[in-house]
Design a protein around this nucleic acid. Sequence first.
DNA 1: GACTCGGTTGACTGACCAGTCAGTCCATCG
DNA 2: CGATGGACTGACTGGTCAGTCAACCGAGTC
Lengths: 213, 213
Amino acid sequence: MASATPSQPPVDKRRQILDAAVHVFARQGFHTCRVSDIADEAGVAYGLVYHYFDSKDEILDTLFSERWQVLLDVIAEIERGDDPVREQLRAIVSFIVDSYVHDPDLMKVIIVEVTRAANTFGRTHLNEIREAYEGIARIVERAQRRGALRSDISPQFAAMAFYGAIEQALTGWIFDLLPTGAGDHDDVKRYIVEAICGGLELRAGEASSAPAL
Amino acid sequence: MASATPSQPPVDKRRQILDAAVHVFARQGFHTCRVSDIADEAGVAYGLVYHYFDSKDEILDTLFSERWQVLLDVIAEIERGDDPVREQLRAIVSFIVDSYVHDPDLMKVIIVEVTRAANTFGRTHLNEIREAYEGIARIVERAQRRGALRSDISPQFAAMAFYGAIEQALTGWIFDLLPTGAGDHDDVKRYIVEAICGGLELRAGEASSAPAL
DNA sequence: GACTCGGTTGACTGACCAGTCAGTCCATCG
DNA sequence: CGATGGACTGACTGGTCAGTCAACCGAGTC
């Protein structure tokens, strides 16, 4: 029987190292931080990092794959449902934005060190990354088929534009270029769906809902 | 008198080093390449790199600022004009896509190593990067004022969504996730403007221009 | 008590690489 | 001519850091 009397809840050192790595990577960047920084932040000995991970790379690989899999599951779940496409896309935005709000450092690391890192980790995880784009593209394509979205924009491209808008919004937060107050995260969720689904132009017969001045 | 009889057009070694750096950075990434790789690629001695540049960082700084300034000039020029907003945005997309087509490696380096590098070069060049976003935001804002765009989406955010869609399209090419054939670059120009200005949803009264099956 | 074994420690090593520097080459000038 | 100085060379150095390893610790077992 496992752990009959865990007198002390055994702290999961492996988890501690991963969590510490998130903060160190976010603060200093993967390439500029030292493994000893991670060990220090985690409050464990240097060597223990190598007891749980083969290399510094493997730490980042693990962080990325763990979290990205959750995103892939969410997309798959949404895809399986029958909601209107606008609602499906809103759910994806919502999940990603909430992920950021819940753990900004982790999302920062994922975006900065992986999804755009064309030579290193981005290449390694290309299939996982691609899977997300493809899921979104399928959602768009299906909506096009049933006439809910225009069909003169390729679903693959639409997925990229959509995901790109989201990632750029997070980047705006990371760089402190977009406001990060209380309502701002919800605003951005709405903005993204509105901008991508509805478009920036006024719809015929619609008044601008906040006329200038 | 400078260069009265340049018997031999003096090859600009500094330029040669910069050009070599573009290819090396694009191929291996800034952090994983060595300065000697750049010197080798440029066909010059190792030490010469340090004759023209103070550090490895300065090479990337120079590459980025050189090119980004051109983008800023283009945006300023477009902003000064009186074209309809859709045409203004089209011109920006067009310039960036053409930049990529003309020198994919340079754009790859700029996107991968700078605009998303929140801890290193992105931070260094934040003001230059911000200036581009702000220029786009002003274009959007002006169009909102004159009623050409809806006003319920913040111009700052609209600029981010717009730029994010562009950068993601380039990222798609860099990672080989989007087709890169003859017409594909022009398609993407149209797609971006359509997706962001017009939106993915069908406009009332518009038929989907390529109805499914 | 003695033995095992997984978790844990941190000093150490070997490779790597940014940046230095002593010196060469060559064009120009007085 | 000899002197000056900028372009250019590449061997070398000093510091850094990922990854190793021998030893330690404490809980469980016999």
